[in-house]
Simulated scan of single mutants.
Amino acid sequence: MREIVLDTETTGFEPATGDRIVEIGAVELLNHMPTGRTYHQYINPQRAMPQDAFEVHGLGDDFLRDKPVFAAVAQAFVDFAGDARLIIHNAAFDMKFLNAELGWAGLPLLAMDRAVDTVAMARRRFPGAPASLDALCRRFGIDNSARTLHGALLDAQILADVYLELIGGRQPDFGLSSDGAQQTDTAVAWRPSPVPVRCRRA
């Protein structure tokens, strides 16, 4: 079974009022094991980056100015996602933005039933407990020390670890399959790796 763990960063909260995606990060899982394949793209939102969004993402107008617009990279994202199930933290938010951008690019929309919401999973498993990505990292002992800013690829990599914990599935660190056979080196060695630091505006 192929799954894509993904995250987006945006200029705000509502595409209907002009907010756009500025970054997509995605990690491929095969039978609940990371394959090492990722997708990562910065995107020019074609609008000024609000100060509050800049403070969260560290992505400023100067950095994004020479990046491609979504329409130019939309097909590459669609091809990477394929028909896989989409694992997303607060799925309604990311799916709303992805489908808005795909619609503007003239491409078919993503079916909502493809998305698995890890926030909903966490709330079912731990009723009343915080369900943020940081809170789940603390609960499961997942190292998120590199998460000083919200970055889509790093968040997707961390979410992949969180998702594996939530489903109680095979853990990459253990190096064993369900029948005791050792996994491939790619699966065993995988760890969320820091994304290169972006230059911030003064």
Score class of each variant (00 low, 15 high):
A71V: 15
I142H: 02
V197Q: 04
L133K: 12
Q182P: 11
G25P: 00
F77R: 05
G58C: 11
A122C: 06
G168E: 03
I167D: 00
V27F: 10
Q183I: 14
Q51E: 12
D62T: 13
W104E: 03
T10A: 12
Y42D: 11
A72S: 10
V69K: 05
Q46A: 07
R200Y: 12
D19Q: 10
V56S: 04
R123W: 07
G18S: 05
L6V: 08
G36R: 14
H57G: 11
R200M: 12
V22F: 09
I24D: 02
E28D: 10
L166A: 11
E101H: 05
R201N: 01
R139H: 07
N44R: 09
H150F: 09
R198W: 14
C137W: 07
L30A: 01
V22N: 08
L59Q: 09
A187L: 04
H40T: 04
L159N: 02
A81V: 13
P15L: 13
F97Q: 01
P45A: 10
L176N: 13
H150N: 02
I158T: 04
H32K: 14
A26N: 06
D143M: 03
L159V: 05
A187H: 04
G106I: 10
G36V: 15
A129T: 06
E14P: 00
A74I: 03
L153H: 02
G151E: 12
Q183R: 12
G180C: 15
G169Y: 12
I158S: 01
T148N: 05
R123Q: 13
A76E: 13
A156T: 09
A120R: 07
I43Q: 05
I24N: 02
T35W: 14
F97I: 03
I142R: 02
D61E: 05
H32D: 15
A76D: 12
T35K: 10
G60T: 10
A187R: 05
L6R: 05
R139L: 11
E28N: 06
C199Y: 06
L110V: 09
R124I: 00
V162H: 06
I4H: 07
D134R: 15
E9M: 08
R147D: 02
A72E: 13
P15W: 14
P192R: 11
